[in-house]
Design a protein around this nucleic acid. Structure first.
Lengths: 243, 243
DNA sequence: GCCGATTTGTCCGTATGTATC
DNA sequence: CGATACATACGGACAAATCGG
């Protein structure tokens, strides 16, 4: 947990925006004011503002000021955002979770798996299939692949709790970057066996490759979500299309 | 188009990574080396590296170096990434596009529309329904709402070409931030009327609010995609969960 | 284990440019 | 035109993590 100055400023401004101490469309105090308020350099203030911009909280306007463009939204579904474990997601979404481990095996990467997952052929893996419950209803089916070269001593018991908690807590692993692809796919027999799709014949599918702080991929996961309980949020900022 | 130093360094490094001048898993030259190579300050190099990190191209490792974690992927479907127009997307995806305007009307925001779109009640809007073709096949159905207070003199002719080109070119509008939500929804009668879903009973739906550089929302769009031709990509970096 | 060299992370102060008012 | 505000860039300082001897 960084106790960096820019991060405390970032968190403080974020809270002031979320609690509407700064109203929607309001101009925030200028960088000059914030420097005095927080007693730091301009670079530090600007770094905090840059992160808020990337989050879609504010819009800096050259020569005019920084405007709050944050609008709270009611969260009806299960919302997916940054990198976080299922357990963290459920807490953020204020749900009660349960996990059932359907499969727990050890395999070795072949050419077919290499193409799909990004692991080198020959890499030993854990393959885990898990069913996720929200408020008692089965909604998500996960297929996890973890590299045994990075993740060791995984057990079905750990898989039934939180693997991320184990990785970060017990193993001291630092999770850094996750590349995700989102698609919509037909249901499979396995999906139908465990999840009541109420008429849908497809699911929301997130596939992700996750890297640790050494730049080593340790996970490939396909996460299949019930459409009614799936929502993915994102903020994009326009890159000047180099004319 | 910014001709900022950090941006040229960013673009240069990006190309060297994409063309595998730096191999996957290779350590890039140190910041010190890059300073000499590009003849600039450390901050400038670091800013370029920060953007590559956000893009999921590299992984900086404290005390060790910066590692290339970019892996090229084959693009089978129509991939959605940052903020861009349909026309730009098709070019990037190397497809031939066509647009058919199904509806073009002017309306005023009521309470129901306000809740959905984020526009204030009473705001005059253009409502446009468009069907998008890729290589001659209808695949995407768009419902656009543009604020007449920001976007003026829109015509069905412009809607049939590229609205973004008109906004940025003719109107001098700068598109800055877009907040997007991705869901999977049941098909509607309108969807089925225009798009051959080949057995799917749902579609991938992107709803987005787009803001200009003054922080004013000028667009709300719901874009409904054929599942087989939809792919959304994203890179997330882990925020330290403030223990 | 220690120490020094290297590398990234954070922070500061300043200067200059550009857009807005 | 001048004052204000954000954007870019520089150079320096110290901290923290890593690695080799």
């Amino acid at each position: 947990m960084p106790k960096a100055k820019y991060d405390t400023i970032y968190k403080d401004l974020k809270e002031k925006i979320e609690t509407e101490i700064y109203a929607y469309q309001e101009i925030l105090p200028s960088e000059h004011m914030l420097i005095h308020e927080y007693g730091c350099s301009r670079n530090t203030v600007r770094r905090a503002l840059a992160e808020l911009t990337a989050d879609g909280y504010v819009q800096p306007m050259h020569g005019r000021g920084v405007r709050n463009i944050y609008q709270p939204v009611e969260q009806a579904a299960f919302t997916v955002g940054g990198i976080e474990s299922f357990k963290e997601s459920t807490i953020r979404n204020k749900r009660v979770s349960k996990t059932k481990v359907l499969q727990f095996t050890e395999i070795v990467t072949d050419e077919k798996i290499e193409r799909r997952t990004g692991f080198k052929k020959g890499t030993p893996l854990y393959y885990i299939q898990r069913l996720r419950f929200l408020n008692g209803i089965p909604l998500i089916l996960d297929h996890n692949y973890f590299s045994k070269e990075v993740v060791s001593n995984l057990t079905p018991e750990i898989a039934g709790q939180s693997i991320y908690e184990y990785l970060e807590g017990e193993l001291g692993l630092t999770i850094a970057t996750s590349k995700r692809t989102l698609t919509v796919e037909h249901v499979t027999q396995v999906d139908e066996k465990y999840i009541d799709l109420k008429g849908y014949n497809c699911m929301a599918v997130i596939t992700s490759q996750t890297f640790n702080d050494k730049g080593i991929q340790f996970e490939y996961t396909q996460s299949r979500h019930h459409p009614d309980y799936f929502r993915f949020q994102d903020v994009a900022t326009r890159k000047r299309t180099g004319l």
